[in-house]
Nucleic acid binder design. Structure first.
Length: 262
DNA sequence: ATGGTAGGATCCCTA
């Protein structure tokens, strides 16, 4: 069985319903994981998604902020949700497919502007969130699992447009990269995107504040697809749909795709 | 050192 998975920070699923429909129509992933839905679950407009075959949806909603959802053509047999760092935010949902593969969908806290927890609570919360992710993966080692989402960290030098310039910018500081590596190691997670595309600059996010995002190309790879070693060898075809960032009234994130032959 | 844009809720917060 082959299935294709995508992850996309949509930055309001209600405002960008038509963009989600376009992506589902054009690319037809079997599973689409969304972050920053910014909507209660019962206000997500599912009619057109259903009509395209995405008859299954799980998620956690929140009014105005955060929010994660998984749209699927395939049945989802069991769901779970965590609230790491006890923030009370809708930042995680997990579901299992009938083939036994568990999918985790995360929206890791952005962490505010100053990379110093003594003056910026949000940065401390981000680090704590990652620490609790690590602890959870360590206590309950994932198997046959995929984890995706907006992790709000670009770990590698070639995951950002200028490594040196971003060393003190939240999303690329060494302390964040170390916390993310600890979470990744605890679950034995393989970075599927970099397994497929090992070399070169690769971004999934370009700020709205850059007047010409495409020409300036000051991007960061904040959105990730990881898999456990028992299925990571089945992954291929990773790609980031950069052109979607150029659609009318876009999200500031581009969707990330991977295909698994299981 | 600063400000740039966007979304959603409320007249500011978060990214």
């Amino acid at each position: 069985m082959t299935f294709t998975l995508a992850t996309w920070n949509i930055n309001s699923v209600r405002l960008r319903e038509a963009l989600v429909v376009a992506l589902l129509r054009n690319e037809a992933p079997d599973v689409l994981c969304l972050q920053e839905c910014k909507s209660p679950l019962d206000k997500i407009p599912v009619e057109q998604f259903r009509a395209l075959g995405y008859t299954h949806m799980i998620g956690r909603g929140q009014k105005g902020y955060n929010g994660v959802a998984i749209l699927s053509k395939l049945p989802i047999v069991e769901t779970a949700a965590a609230d790491y760092a006890s923030l009370g935010h809708a930042r995680h949902i997990a579901g299992r497919l009938e083939n036994g593969v568990t999918i985790h969908n995360f929206y890791v806290p952005a962490g505010g502007d100053k990379p110093d927890r003594t003056v910026n609570d949000k940065f401390g919360q981000k680090l704590d969130y990652l620490t609790e992710m690590r602890n959870a993966f360590h206590a309950d080692r994932p198997e046959k699992s995929i984890m995706v989402g907006d992790l709000n960290i670009a770990p590698r030098e070639d995951d950002v447009w200028d490594h040196k310039k971003l060393l003190k910018i939240v999303s690329h500081t060494p302390v964040e990269v170390e916390h993310l590596a600890q979470a990744q190691d605890a679950g034995n997670w393989v970075d599927v995107t970099r397994q497929d595309i090992p070399q070169g600059k690769l971004y999934s996010w370009w700020s709205y504040r850059s007047p010409d995002w495409d020409a300036a190309d000051k991007g960061r790879r904040l959105d990730h697809i990881w898999a456990t070693p028992d299925i990571s060898g089945a992954a291929h075809g990773s790609r980031i749909l950069r052109h979607v960032r150029g659609w009318e009234q876009p999200s500031d994130h581009a969707p990330v795709f991977a295909t698994f032959d299981l």
